[in-house]
């Protein structure tokens, strides 16, 4: 299904990271490649400390990589060039507003820095998010604070949204409101979203493509549906002398007496035949959730490295 996401040319890309490395005392990003197709939603999934936030900060020009190139919306990003940030909206869970000041004060402040600020849209968001303009930030709940920050970002109508854990810690209603607003953004096919989450359900729901990150590496990247189609959990009933057939991507996850549970990351029609040829009886073939796929990908990656 690669035809669903097309971007063979740079013009179709909202952002591109090439060969990015960045070293810290206890953490390293290694040769990161990432391509973000214009008009799409990319989910960045990774355990805590995998490097998601650093990648996003590099894209924003907040952190300069040790090597490699970053281009966003057709321009090369560097930390000394502030103008490139005009069209990017960045949210991070680590970001705070000025506690004593009101939501409205922040709106005026942000508005003064963005010619693209849309008053009508800001007023709509204020209403839809149930925020009170004159309320001081210190009195806001976590969910209201996240929504206030998103309002400040969305109302300037950025072409690219870089959102680091936007749904983290939100109650189900706030999460629904936030995801809904994000999906409204990509109704415009020239606007793009990159967001990270460890809630794989959010990512599964709204992402077009997915990038898995673990320990500073991109361990897997691609179209979301491809992942879901390719990965299957297979339950087999086998005899004692059965061994796992030599098929790329097939991995034994657990066994119990005659039961074998396998995961397969390159599932195709011929897979079933090959398994049946091995003498096993297929009990079931079930799709895997993104979370299961993610965990399995991380574990496989770590096993390979330790070999």
């Amino acid at each position: 299904m690669t035809t669903l996401l097309e971007a063979s040319t740079d013009a179709g890309l909202a952002a591109r990271l090439q060969n990015i490395t960045k070293s810290y005392a206890h953490f390293q990003l290694k040769k990161i490649h990432l391509e973000l197709v214009k008009g799409s939603v990319m989910g960045l999934i990774g355990p805590n400390g995998a490097g998601k936030s650093t990648i996003m900060r590099i894209l924003m020009g907040l952190v300069n990589p040790d090597s490699g190139t970053v281009s966003v919306l057709g321009t090369t990003i560097s930390s000394s060039d502030a103008a490139a940030k005009q069209d990017i909206g960045y949210f991070s869970d680590d970001m705070r507003l000025y506690k004593p000041e009101s939501v409205g004060w922040h709106m005026q402040f942000v508005r003064s820095l963005y010619p693209t600020w849309d008053d009508q849209y800001a007023a709509d968001l204020l209403r839809r998010f149930g925020l009170i303009e004159h309320q001081a930030v210190k009195g806001l709940s976590h969910g209201q604070r996240v929504k206030a920050m998103l309002l400040l970002i969305l109302a300037r109508r950025p072409k690219l949204l870089i959102l680091d854990e936007p749904t983290n810690g939100l109650d189900p209603v706030a999460r629904h409101e936030v995801l809904g607003e994000l999906m409204k953004v990509v109704e415009d096919e020239n606007r793009t979203i990159l967001y990270s989450s460890h809630n794989t359900q959010d990512v599964e729901q709204i992402s077009d493509s997915i990038t898995f990150i673990d320990r500073g590496h991109v361990i897997s990247a691609g179209n979301r549906d491809e992942y879901l189609d390719r990965w299957k959990r297979i339950r087999l009933q086998v005899s004692d002398d059965w061994s796992v057939p030599n098929l790329d991507g097939l991995r034994l996850e657990s066994s119990f007496r005659s039961l074998r549970v396998l995961s397969m990351n390159q599932f195709q029609d011929s897979t079933m035949e090959r398994i049946q040829e091995s003498g096993a009886t297929i009990e079931s073939i079930a799709p895997m959730t993104l979370e299961e796929i993610f965990v399995s990908t991380v574990m496989r990656g770590r096993e390979e490295k330790s070999l």
Binding site: L5, G180, I206
Partner: peptide, 11 residues
């Protein structure tokens, strides 16, 4: 439009 109102991905 449909993706937005169902809150699912465009793809």
């Amino acid at each position: 439009e449909l993706a937005s109102s169902l809150q699912v991905s465009v793809i």
